[in-house]
Amino acid sequence: MSTAIDSFLAMMAAERGAAPNTLAAYRRDLEGSEDAVGDLLAAGRDDLLSLSGEWASLAPSTVARKISALRQFYGFCVDEGLRKDDPATALPRPQTRRPLPKVLSHDEVERMFTQVEKEAGEGKPNAIRLLALFELLYGSGLRASELVSLHVSAVPRDAPFLTITGKGGQQRMVPVSRRAQSAIARWVEVRPDGSKHLFPSRTGHISRIRLYQMVKELAARADIDPAKVSPHVLRHAFATHLLEGGADLRVLQTLLGHADIATTQIYTHVDSARLVALVNERHPLAGGQRGG
């Protein structure tokens, strides 16, 4: 069975550009299902339906992900002639709602900036590094994995852009604010030499887990509940506050590196007040007047 899973994952990597974390998640889901029902290539519709009992305690979003993995796996098996039928058609299509992202207020972000700038002002390399990381998380909306793995070569000297390799190996250009450029320049001056990574560690680059810890610790020092803050929450804040400032949804999609604009649309809920005010102020019927 592992051969079939390996072949499926190889296809996902080669043809769809699935990222390593995505491939690992597919493997866990497929091997977990096989642990429950036995050889997936020999499993029937009833076997797959029995998985509902195994999944009873899981969140709907988790169940939806596992079902998606099985549907794609069996579709691959049929296409490759490994099976003549697709037992995954017996699985339900759960209707899940994407959770609304946590949102930090402008004041909370400002408090964190005040704290990290104060610390960086003392000249310690780790504090200057954190300032550069924080500026890029909130100022450019990078994913944690994109940020920690940045190469020095991704930061051009003569243009306010970063070259980012995102999910599926897709590259995009991300603008960098003057503040972030200044913070990066300060970090480069004190950064250890000898690594291709902008934020190096002894074994390569700093990890996502370490970035997560640093952001939580900064929030606590700024008297903000650490449970509210993470690198991904700062990415959400970047998107939310841009929309509040009038950014176009398609532009935001490009900046965030979303393949599907439906993913970007999750942010529109936070901007409802501004949209209502826009209609009330700018619509031809505003103020009781009709357009010509």
Rank of each mutant, 00 (worst) to 15 (best):
R221P: 09
H151R: 14
L41M: 15
P60W: 03
S272Q: 13
L275V: 13
A18F: 12
V188H: 00
L211F: 02
A36R: 05
R97M: 04
P175I: 06
R27D: 04
I266R: 05
Q181Y: 00
S68A: 15
E108L: 03
K66A: 13
F238I: 05
F161G: 02
A127R: 12
A18V: 05
L275Y: 07
T165L: 13
S177E: 11
T203D: 11
V251S: 14
I224E: 07
V279D: 07
H241T: 06
F134G: 06
A259Y: 12
F134K: 06
A127D: 15
A14N: 12
Y74T: 03
D86Y: 07
I206M: 14
A10H: 12
G204L: 11
H197R: 10
L82M: 15
A220H: 12
Y212G: 05
A13L: 09
S61G: 08
A90I: 07
D248M: 08
M214E: 14
G257T: 04
M214D: 08
S140V: 01
L104M: 09
H151M: 10
P92S: 05
D46R: 14
P92Y: 03
T268Q: 07
D107A: 14
K167T: 08
S182P: 00
T96L: 06
R221L: 13
L252S: 04
